[in-house]
Design a protein around this nucleic acid. Structure first.
Length: 342
DNA sequence: AAGGGACGCAACCGCCAAACT
DNA sequence: TAGTTTGGCGGTTGCGTCCCT
């Protein structure tokens, strides 16, 4: 029954490929093609598993591969496609001639995820963090919102201070004239060198305090709470308006953070239209779930991944072609992307 | 100059659907 | 039709290199 095993696990070599092995594999495939991966290592005189040979060929040896750095246009394509199809690297790579799924995956994990996070955009949902927080807040009553705010601010503090600490030296070294570093969008009127260098340790606590103050002020604003007399805020039946207003405190908190940390390179509302016009600022914000893009394009947020599990669970989506039926068509998708089964 | 941590990339692992016997 | 392998995919890991202290 069935076929014979692809290779004897005990007799196969593992680890890095040598130039000799590459030559053997390349010359064999040049002559005989890639029809049967089980037989290729045997016939080519390689002590490798067929699967290992296939990976080596598809990810490295194929003559049509690009090996250089990713261009900005390629990065934009990856981000756009990822906002629609999630971690389906093979689909994304198919739109980038010369790039493999492994290339795209590695580049996403090592560069693009951090780049998006640094711009205040969640790499899983492609929404601004502030927008995410507001969305979460709409599902909670204000007392819970307050607790969530505390937790979220802790996250922001750690994340942003980490970024600031890491970048400070680079900015001072490379941009003594105050210009924005490569790949980052400068804010008008901000000077990186002075703003970073002037930060004191106590600024960190000041920042968090500022945010907390802003949030609590917004929470207690009479305009954001129901007006029934003699009912303590925590006991009031919350109206849609009040909850909606309270949820805005998250966006305010985030923007307060970005504003109060002088020199924060991406500024508040990094997904708005108030950027500097750099390709990154424009392209990132075309994500299907971005508020700004939703408004500009008249979208209702049906496209993209509304929850992290779906975005992360590439395998779970394989059979689900609904992602291609999204109302949210942001750019021209090729036929095979729109109809992956074809 | 040396040690340690961070980073990037290549390769492996495990799962799934299709193909095959 | 059932059992098995193959090919393909996404997630994860290991290792070499770079950079900072």
């Amino acid at each position: 029954m069935g076929r014979i095993p692809c290779c004897e696990k005990d007799n196969v070599k593992r680890g890095q490929w040598t130039p000799e092995e590459d030559n053997k594999l390349s010359s064999y495939i040049a002559q005989h093609g890639t029809r049967n991966w089980r037989l290729i290592p045997k016939n080519a005189g390689l002590q490798r598993c067929g699967k290992s040979c296939r990976l080596r060929w598809t990810n490295y040896l194929r003559p049509d591969l690009k090996h250089g750095e990713f261009q900005e246009s390629e990065e934009q394509t990856i981000v756009k496609l990822h906002s629609v199809v999630g971690n389906r690297w093979s689909l994304i790579a198919a739109q980038l001639p010369g790039r493999t799924d492994n290339d795209v995956k590695n580049h996403w994990n090592t560069k693009l995820k951090k780049k998006l996070s640094g711009m205040g955009i969640d790499p899983v949902t492609h929404k601004p963090f502030s927008h995410l927080m507001a969305e979460i807040a709409t599902t909670l009553a204000p007392p819970q919102v307050a607790h969530l705010t505390e937790a979220a601010l802790g996250c922001f503090k750690d994340e942003m201070l980490h970024l600031l600490t890491k970048k400070r030296v680079d900015f001072q070294m490379e941009h003594s004239n105050g210009a924005a570093p490569h790949g980052l969008a400068p804010l008008p009127g901000r000077n990186f060198t002075t703003s970073y260098a002037s930060r004191r340790p106590s600024d960190e606590d000041d920042t968090v305090q500022k945010i907390k103050l802003s949030v609590s002020r917004a929470m207690q604003d009479p305009n954001t709470l129901p007006s029934e007399p003699n009912i303590a805020p925590s006991n009031k039946p919350w109206t849609m308006v009040s909850i909606g207003e309270a949820s805005n405190t998250f966006a305010e908190a985030y923007n307060t953070f970005a504003t109060s940390v002088s020199g924060f390179p991406y500024g508040p509302s990094s997904c708005g239209n108030d950027g500097d016009g750099s390709p990154w600022n424009q392209s990132i914000c075309t994500g299907s779930t971005c508020t700004g893009a939703d408004q500009r394009l008249g979208l209702n947020g049906k496209g993209g991944h509304e929850d992290g599990d779906e975005a992360e669970g590439g395998k779970g989506m394989r059979k689900d072609s609904d992602v291609f039926n999204s109302d949210c068509v942001l750019w021209d998708l090729t036929d095979d992307l729109m109809n992956p089964a074809a």
